[in-house]
Design a protein around this nucleic acid. Structure first.
Lengths: 231, 231
DNA sequence: TTACTTCTTCACAATTTCTTCATCATTTCT
DNA sequence: AGAAATGATGAAGAAATTGTGAAGAAGTAA
């Protein structure tokens, strides 16, 4: 998990420096710019995790920056508003800012809000990354395979073999190919080890291991995953 | 609405008395001391809602008091600075003060600022930012985890590990990833230190540590928080 | 400083998984 | 059908991984 990064956009160098120190204390990677155009440029280049944006900027206003960034992405934005003006706040939120803090603010509060926003927006735990085929679901992030919703108790090697075959249904893999995938490039063992794993795997995924319907043997070649066409 | 309490720290009895009267008019419970050490002592004893702190104090300076209190808690602090010196202001904010007022000030302004800070910090999302999963509640702001409403006594590292895993239920983390999260990017130690922390953590959160149900081991990969990643 | 908590590391035990082998079953080919 | 090749299987020892307690190091607070 990488370090959090924040892009500060404030034309007051003192405030920028102050905030920078606070964020760095919290282990953020801090980028800091003093005007809107540079902000956009740096944003596009670095894609920080969040922006802290002063509403009052010379030239292009903070609202413009906010609007533009919102067009390009969902990167969270915290607005700094000069006064506790309801108007500014509403406009900011309307443009897609995620929160705002009024000046004079405490740096602690700004950091706290940023962390809260990041937590909120990150709640989606790594886009659910699943693979489905027939009754099986592979959960890559969780290293599990489930059949009809029940998680199977696979060993690491069994999981890897299943993943390899299931994600390439119908494609035959030789034992050598499988060993390479599963144990890494340099293999020096008995190719038939795969047979043992397939045997154990079949026990766990096939209703009747004597008549395998999921992982099929291709005589003289290797194994393949049955396409989900029939039974 | 319970009564607000404020701790005044100023070595000038006249100013202290003046402020006291204003705060009492606004229905504050006022504590007043004239030096740093006494301030810390009374603070720890009474836990006021907010501190009004003179920068200029005999002996231990206001900055020291501010720094120390910030170590101990998030209690808001309003600094009184002798002049409108940008430096003092920035130093104060840097140390974690929430706002400042320059002398000569109007007592009404001080009270107004205090009320503003209290308003702000009361509605701060930080205070209402929790994560729930099963019987556990993570209080991000307080760095605590409770189970069935009882706060667990976790070490900082244990808390971080728990937060990482619990907020990503079902997702496996390798020891390396966990170490990176917990100790920062530059890691040069023993990966299996994580095992020790997990062991200690399990003692505290699992009813039967011999049969872990909360933090699960994924053999050959790492650890994950039990959670319904599938359906 | 001392006392205290927390972190890291280590050794070894406990557990799980992998590999290998002998044997039997099945398929293919003549 | 018979022979030869290939695959399936159970079991056992080897190997890898994790669990655990304890000791010392490192960090904190008073």
């Amino acid at each position: 998990m990488p370090q959090n990064s924040v892009l500060l956009v404030d034309d007051d160098p003192k405030i920028a420096k102050l905030l920078r120190r606070y964020f760095e204390k919290e282990d953020f990677l801090v980028l800091s710019v003093h005007d809107g155009p540079t902000a956009l440029q740096l944003y596009r280049d670095k894609k920080p995790d969040i922006l802290v944006l002063d509403l009052m900027l010379p030239g292009v206003s903070g609202l413009d920056v906010c609007r533009q960034i919102r067009k390009e992405s969902d990167t969270p934005i915290l607005m700094l508003t000069a006064r506790d003006e309801e108007t500014d706040r509403l406009i900011g939120l309307e443009l897609g800012a995620d929160d705002y803090v009024s000046k004079p603010f405490s740096p602690r509060e700004v950091v706290a809000r940023v962390k809260a926003i990041l937590r909120r927006t990150r709640k989606t735990p790594e886009k659910a990354d699943f693979f489905r085929t027939g009754k099986f679901i592979i959960d890559f992030a969780g290293y599990t395979v489930s059949a009809d919703g029940i998680v199977l108790d696979l060993t690491p090697t069994e999981y890897k073999i299943f993943e390899l075959l299931a994600t390439h249904p119908g494609q035959v893999f030789t034992r050598f190919q499988m060993v390479e995938q599963v144990q890494g490039v340099a293999f020096e063992g008995y190719e038939r080890t795969i047979d043992a794993h397939v045997k154990n795997l079949r026990r766990k995924i096939d209703d009747n291991p004597k008549d395998p319907r999921i992982i099929l043997t291709v005589y003289g070649v290797g194994y393949k995953f049955a396409g989900d066409a029939h039974a």
